[in-house]
């Protein structure tokens, strides 16, 4: 019994001491918005669509981000240019549903969709939380600078014929009997 009372008192004194000791420690919080906090580059905030190093849209409309999204807040439609390059006809994110989980970025095979450190996305009207491709697409490569999916893929697009992708041999001549 006596030990129980002793332990309880010690524990309370220790707790109080810990609390008060923080009076002299430097604060982790900042005076937002007067002062901007430091955001880590891999913070999962506002989503963007990036461009490849050649300045073309990276997204190939593969739909993998949309299917990975646990709240189903991404919708898009594939279309194609005259030379066979796939890209989204529209690409929509309903940020009022997005939980910033980053699954879309993880699913994306082209590094197109990326989460950024920007978290200031509040709106007065919920409808304004619906972003289309025009709002999402940035001019740069985002976090990943070098990757260009179409340089690796085998599909022919404008400016890249069969056999011209990374690690590809020239196309076979089917009439040849040579080994």
């Amino acid at each position: 019994m006596l030990t129980l009372i002793k332990d309880t008192l010690t524990s309370q004194v220790v707790t109080l001491w810990r609390v008060f000791s923080h009076l002299w420690v430097k604060a982790d919080t900042v005076e937002y918005p007067d002062e901007q906090p430091y955001m880590f580059p891999r913070w999962r905030g506002r989503i963007i669509l990036s461009r490849d190093p050649d300045g073309e849209e990276r997204c190939v409309a593969c739909n993998l981000c949309a299917v990975a999204c646990p709240v189903d807040c991404i919708a898009l439609q594939k279309t194609e240019d005259e030379e066979g390059r796939w890209y989204p006809e529209f690409f929509r994110i309903n940020f009022s549903r997005c939980i910033m989980c980053g699954f879309c970025e993880e699913a994306c095979p082209t590094n197109a969709i990326q989460l950024t450190p920007d978290f200031e996305m509040a709106e007065y009207k919920r409808q304004d939380m619906v972003w289309e491709k025009e709002d999402l697409l940035i001019d740069g490569t985002g976090k990943y600078h070098d990757y260009n999916f179409y340089r690796v893929a085998g599909k022919k697009i404008g400016g890249k014929d069969k056999g011209e992708a990374l690690n590809e041999a020239v196309p076979v001549n089917v009439r040849s009997l040579l080994p």
Partner: peptide, 9 residues
């Protein structure tokens, strides 16, 4: 996919 975005526009 896209249940909460298809008609959000």
């Amino acid at each position: 996919s896209g249940r909460t975005a298809m008609l959000a526009n």
